[in-house]
Amino acid sequence: MHEMGIAAEIIKIAESSIPEDFDGAVEKVNMRIGKMSSVVPESLKFCFDIASEDTRLKGADFVIEEIPVVFLCKECEKETEADGPQFSCKECGGKKIEIISGKELEITSIELED
């Protein structure tokens, strides 16, 4: 829904991370995106390709590692990977949980041509 704004922010962060003395091409932008981040990876990639057109990131591969939603049951302390919208422990059925991954929206690195 708001992927264009997110893409613009990613481009800003990535461009500011290019070393000052480097004038070659950026080959890859590596991302980690949680399944609970309200971002649609395909749409974000589409927006990135458009928004990076007039930047130093033009043509860079936008690589997304999707992170599953994992929560910790506060009752039996087991971890569950959520496969649907309900957050209950697969082991004991407990509903008191803490989300430990799945909300990531991070740029992890850029890869520069040699």
Partner: peptide, 13 residues
Amino acid sequence: MEVKIVKKVLDAN
């Protein structure tokens, strides 16, 4: 060459 960043996109927010 890989430049590590590890930054939340919504950091500014």
